[in-house]
Design a protein around this nucleic acid. Structure first.
Lengths: 231, 231
DNA sequence: GGTTGACCAGAAGTGCGATTCCGGTCAACA
DNA sequence: TGTTGACCGGAATCGCACTTCTGGTCAACC
């Protein structure tokens, strides 16, 4: 038991994700997943203590991949960390991942999967650090009232708009991302060209924070906890 | 039947609103409403052909009052029509009306009440006219990409944020409205002082459009249609 | 030691008859 | 003529027994 096959774990997660998209959390039986992979049901339990942890792992892997994607963009072009580019890139990357979108939408299904996870704290800290770093380097205006709320509320509608109403379904994702970028740039960034030095510094600082986040994610994916809760 | 008492109609709507807030659409029986007013159930049907129309009337009255409130502000100070003030004023006024908020939230309950109403078209036209007029008078920047979507998506989060998550519950409504105003002003309005002449013109133009809307609302409230649908 | 799948308990779903509820009508009444 | 409330039918809800499903375990097997 000491070292369950990591490659097999990934195959399990692949199958779980596929089934999740097709049938929703409720309808996916652990047995289905095992059969799809061609292993016994018990084997799944060698990897994760229960069904919920399995799906948590799936979401963590998805989040890790997503974050990696953003990291890649930052490496390719440090200016990606500019708020309007960072936020619109996140929007695009998120919307192109069906599992993540399903998670964002699926309030009813699979709640708790990431809801009460300790990762929330991690993500909050990242957000706070993002804002603080940007402010410190002058890449976000200092006169924005209630920055945290402002960013949240202004951005939220872009994520939720598609879900309800479907009024703007026809607009291509890229165009929506550009609208979001426009709004962030005009409302939250100073006018004029950003200082390249500041950009490089922030890219380094945020890059390592993101790498840290990815490693926390990845650690969580395969961490099956053999201890049993008392009681 | 020809002229059911208008004052009585208002008392019925008062009771309906109160009960609606307390128990939700489903649980409110027409009998409850009648009893609360102290009249017979049949009398209610002298005013509206069925329950749904009654609640539609309630929502129209609420919308009319709300619009009137905004009109009052415009009259008191024409500069209220500036996008950032108009939108934040609407936000405030809306959030202070429990019935309207209940309507916005209550997807499950009372759907169709205003959903498939022809008023949508009316409101869409108003929105379009708002944008078009603002652009024409130079009170909205002409370089905003996809203006309609931009305004919608940027604003939506402020209305929905409170509903889900409750993360920012502690922030006073006025402060949130100011954040919204800041975002609209910086993203959608030109820099520099607005031309007072343009403000006055737009105030007049939009004022009459809003008055028109109010009169459509008011007409709808008491308009019981004696004709019966065929079939 | 690693893996399996038959097995179990309890949770979730189903079917359906009995019951309650309530929107809408209309004969009777003031 | 305006108003009422008893009444009706259909729809929603409830109760409950019966069935199916499925997360998790563990003895047996490789």
């Amino acid at each position: 038991m000491s070292h369950p096959n990591r490659e097999r774990a990934d195959r399990i997660l692949d199958a779980a994700g596929e089934l999740l998209l097709r049938m929703g959390y409720r309808k996916v039986a652990v047995d289905d997943i095992a059969r799809a992979v061609g292993i016994g049901k018990g084997t799944v339990y060698l990897h994760w203590r229960n069904k919920e942890l399995l799906f948590q792992a799936l979401m963590m892997r998805e989040s890790a991949d997503l974050t990696d994607e953003i990291l890649g963009r930052i490496e390719a072009d440090p200016a990606t960390i500019l708020p309007h580019r960072m936020i619109s890139a996140s929007y695009l990357v998120t919307h192109r991942r069906p599992l993540v979108m399903a998670m964002l939408r699926g309030n009813a299904d699979m709640f708790g999967s990431l809801g009460d996870l300790a990762l929330r704290k991690q993500q909050d800290e990242l957000r706070t650090q993002f804002e603080e770093t940007m402010l410190r380097h002058g890449l976000i205006r200092s006169d924005v009232p209630n920055l945290t709320y402002a960013l949240n509320a202004s951005t939220l509608g872009f994520y939720l708009g598609d879900t309800l109403s479907g009024e703007f379904e026809g607009i291509p994702l890229e165009e929506k991302a550009e609208v979001l970028a426009y709004m962030i740039r005009t409302s939250f960034e100073p006018s004029g060209e950003p200082d390249p030095r500041a950009v490089a510094d922030v890219a380094a600082e945020l890059g390592s924070a993101l790498e840290e986040l990815v490693s926390v994610y990845r650690k969580g994916i395969y961490a099956h906890d053999p201890t049993r809760a008392p009681g």
